[in-house]
Design a protein around this nucleic acid. Sequence first.
RNA 1: GUCCCCAUCGUCUAGUCUGGCCCAGGACACCGCCCUUUCACGGCGGCGACACGAGUUCAAAUCUCGUUGGGGACGCCA
Length: 484
Amino acid sequence: MTDSEVRVRIAPSPTGYFHVGTARTAIFNWLYARKMGGRFFLRIEDTDRDRSKREYVDIVLDGLRWLGLDWDDEPIFQSQRFDSYKPVAQELLAEGKAYRCFCSPEELNRKRQQAQKEKRNYRYDRTCRDLTETQIRERLDTGIPFVVRLKLPSTGTVGFDDVVLGKAQKAYEDLDDFIILKSDGNAVYNFAVVVDDHDMGITHVIRGNDHVANTYLQKELYQALGFKLPVFAHVPLILRPDRSKVSKRKSDKGVTDYQQEGYLPETLLNFLALLGWSPKDDREKMSRAELIEAFSLEAINAANAIFDPEKLTWLNGEYIRDKSNHELAKLVAPILIERQFSTKYALETRWQWFMQVIGALKERCKLVSEFADKGAYFFIDEFDYDVKGVKKRFGKPGVRENLTLLYERFDNITDFTEATTEEALRELVDELDCKPAELIHPTRLAVSGLTGGPSLFLLLELVGQQQVIARMKRAVAYIEKMGE
RNA sequence: GUCCCCAUCGUCUAGUCUGGCCCAGGACACCGCCCUUUCACGGCGGCGACACGAGUUCAAAUCUCGUUGGGGACGCCA
């Protein structure tokens, strides 16, 4: 690694859910690395065995891959670095910058509750900070478990420069001699992060602003250890419409959910990149390359942002319309197969037709899954009629007769196309001396079950002569039954 | 509760650092109109914000202070 090289990382903890906030932080880190010609690393923070499961790691990895956020080198697992922390803590202990604390969790808890009761702000009272050598020996010999705490000054302030927030500072009085090593000898998050970031040569720490409180503590560690301080950039949080933090517990959607619902990776990448950051011009739709080109840490906002699902959906519609029919067909096929609307074989043998169907539906779909929702009738014959549509289109007098006359004409067409079906319908319109709409709407409902959709004549051609006639007959029978 | 951070349309934001070009620009959503066999797409137009109060200044969305509101952190979790 060279001195000038930018090295950033995303450090997710695998909880079985790929948080949009994590994804957005990953995007910012990735964009910055790619923009600066630097390196983007992945570090899995899996030291909490209770919560971290192996298969959960894949959820994060798959999500990152799906978004196209390629990371450099192999991911680093914090759980495999357990041994790296202890020696560093020993060093701190030896230098008198840290000390052993023999206070029991119960005792601490009691004090914490007491403080809360008295409405005081709780801080560790530093009971063990000035234990003599012999006192420490005694306790060690008795086998009392201990944690290691970092010594902090009691007066003055800590501060750091943040690219997003500017200067942030806090009084030492509000800070604790925090624990760096648990009684089981393992590192606590704030300690592990500093050691890891240093060992990985991280130059820029770009993370959510829910970490600013940690940063003051971590800065103390950097100083005690003589490590070079990285550049900090605390990015705003993503909030739900009710302004609270997006979370799995509130059953908010994760990246995986958006993927499954039919959102495109380029949509999510683009949308998330624009939450808390802006290119400073009017661009809303930006490609990967444009995002990299325009990105800068300085342009990141300090204010938290609310996730607007409607805007996300709009953007997705934009991206869908940009895609070729072939690309979309490839994305829609698995959904059709999964819903048993079609089979792989059937789609492959009618690929040209399938692409036409996709083309007909394209500007009406904002989600990939909508092609299956709104175009089911292209693949299956059994569908219900839209309830409102039935009232409006099948309820009028003469509809049954007109539909009958029309399908008879359709039956006589030798080359059943968009043009010939239109010709046949318009001819009948002339003879009946009615409005085109009087035939068009009931026919659409009969053939598709819906009141809206692609141009009727294109729709007829794509559904095919036999199906069209069969469905119109079915509709006539249905209307007859209605009348009874 | 304590500490920290934040504050422009309902939402995402430009403008704030480097006061005047801003009676505030764009986008989503919403509402109209146009296109049209429907639904969409597209085009055009509309609605809609500088949280409040002081101060500094010839001039404040922009600077300062306060108030209010919102968020976050307060674990031998990460």
